[in-house]
Design a protein around this nucleic acid. Sequence first.
DNA 1: AATTGGCTCAACCGCTCTATG
DNA 2: TCATAGAGCGGTTGAGCCAAT
Length: 323
Amino acid sequence: MGRAPCCDKASVKKGPWSPEEDAKLKDFMEKHGTCGNWIALPHKAGLKRCGKSCRLRWLNYLRPNIKHGEFSEDEDRIICSLYASIGSRWSVIASQLQGRTDNDIKNYWNTKLRKKLLAYLPSFQKTPSFNNNPNNFMNIASSSFYNYNPNFMNVNNNINSLFPTTTTTTSSHVQSHTNITDLFSQPGMIAPQRNYLEFQNQNMDKEYYFPEMKESQRVVMFGYDGGEQSCNKDDHEIKQEEQFMLKDFGDQNQGFMMTDHNYNDQKQKGCLKNLEQVKQMMGINGSINVDINRYLMSMNDDDENKTTHIITDGFYRMIDGSN
DNA sequence: AATTGGCTCAACCGCTCTATG
DNA sequence: TCATAGAGCGGTTGAGCCAAT
């Protein structure tokens, strides 16, 4: 049995709101507010509408200081940058843009901004399969687009405010091959520019703490960051997270940032099948391949497999429906 | 002038999250 | 700890608009 509906569907009006309904809702809200209960509000306000419909109408259209109309360049930059970092969490993005609603931003992204962004892309990323997959924009906005549009770097303070300080925990799974120190001492690896701190948490797991990671533009972060709410660790092949920082990633000395791994739905997104797909997604002709090769060559066979898994997990968002 | 197809965006749907008892 | 209900969120839909034919 499904849950009970929030209202009697037969007796509520649907579709566009009339000016009279708007006036009633606005008047009621200004005098009484929601009274802590949207479901009961329409009855009190004399509206034949579902409570959810009233809430949406108020939040997206009637409440004060709502901004409608054209988005500015600055707003574009913030939206793109946040989308690159956190994905389609429209309410979070909206919270960074005064007067804009999540619905507004979602519509704007889907109808205009996404296309605008595509216009900046190098040709190899304009293949049909690439364009048709909205998840690819994680890649676009995180790498090449940044390279082509350095101004997008300027909004990182907004991004940083959304993320907690980064920590990473080793597990038996990854501890068997390396720790962070060993990893960066491998031939061909370049140690992170920034220091990290090592300590044990309350569960006596080893944790690595990168005090300045949020600010770094030269970050490669594979795996997921494993917040308690976001990850059922038993569901994942990689049970703990690991982070790597590489210097000089890309021929323009631009960084690459992957922080967006902490979603419940990551299993449904699919992940890359193999290393070739990872490479392909990172740019067929791009110099990034070279860095990845160098990185993988620094591992022995066993480590390469693990590394591939880590990369695969990190890039689960890039290809839709792969297995 | 009529038709068609693409685009926009307000609104809805269904799901998850969270608070409460 | 569990059940319930409201709030909030992101994906999707469809009416209306507009430009192209």
